[in-house]
Every structure is written in C-alpha cells, then in structure tokens.
Amino acid sequence: MGPLTYFGEISTEWNYVIAIFIGMAFGYIMEASGFSSSRKLIGVFYGYDFAVIRVFITATLVAIIGLLYMGYFGWIDYSVLFVHPTFIFSATIGGIIMGFGFIIGGFCPGTSLCALAIGKLDGWVFTIALFIGIFIYSLVFPLIKPYYNMGDMGHITISEYLNMSNAWFTFWFAIIAVAIFYVTSVIRKKVKEVRY
C-alpha cells in the first residue's frame, strides 16, 4: 500500500535514486511533448497550438481518476496524500503574477529547465531570472508576509469546497475536459497556422 515512503518501505537513499528517475521521466515527457519550445507553449494563448492545455488537462484527469481508483482499491492511502494548502489570496495573486510571467517569458519553471537542457538560451535566461525572482521574493518577504498567509483555508480539496463527492467532481471535470478538447480542436482549425 502506498505511498511507499510514507509507510517506510523505501529507504532515504533509494528515495533519492527514485527522485532522479522520476525527474528524468518528467523531463523526458515534457520535452517529448514539446514543452521545451516557448513558441509551442505560448501557442495555447493565440490558438495555433493547444499542446499545453491538452497535456495539462489530460495529465490532471488521468491522475485524478487513477488516484481515486487506487484509493478505492486500497493500493494507496488516499487520506495521507499531500494536499496542497489553500491560501485564497496568495494563490490568486501568485497565479496572476505567474500568468504575466508565462505570457511574457514564454515558459514556466519546469519547461524552462527542459529548454535549458537542450541548449535553448532563452531557457537559460529564464531560469537564471527565476533564481533572481526567488531571491527578490526573499528580500521583500517581511513586507508581504501578512498577505502571504491571508485567507488560510487549510488543506482543503475542491470537492469539499463545492460540497460534492470526489467522484461527482471528477465526472463533471471529465466532461468539461472533453468539451475543452473539442473546442480547442475546432479553434485550431480556424486559426492561421504558425510555423516555427
């Protein structure tokens, strides 16, 4: 029964080895899906390439469904999985800042590392700027600390928030996802193709 490290079935040393392999798989999948190209990534916002949103939503959907099934079958203890804590204010504002960063920079941190790995200089610059961004954040942290902890809702899940069961939420999410897939394919056909 998983998670394996939680139940102490994997030693710390192996954990690091596994970390490398998981990272490799992550990097490989992202690169192979074309996430190392900022023009491909940004295509999602101009309608000429929807790879990002397709990969992203497919991955989320597969993971949600898979984890719920695994929890149901007793292969994984769903209750101990780390649920990202919700801080409404910082999540929203942070998301907006990252949205600007995405549209201007053309990468997100994971994809910039992929770009960096295959020698794209914009990836290098983005990553270095990322470091500096984190450093700046640490400098101004005392000033924005109250905002950072605003709207603490704890480790809440969206289905709890909407007061529906995990299963029903997943079902509606799946329908929305398929609708998005369909709409994106229609848009893609209408938008002028961009060669890059």
């Binding site: 998670p3 490290t5 939680y6 139940f7 102490g8 101990v80 999985l81 780390f82 990202h84 941190p109």
Partner: peptide
C-alpha cells in the same frame, strides 16, 4: 507521526 511528505513545487 509519519507526516506525508511536504510539498514543494
């Protein structure tokens, strides 16, 4: 308590 691993991003 074996706490679930802390998330990073």
């Amino acid at each position: 308590k074996k706490k679930a691993a802390e998330g990073g991003c």
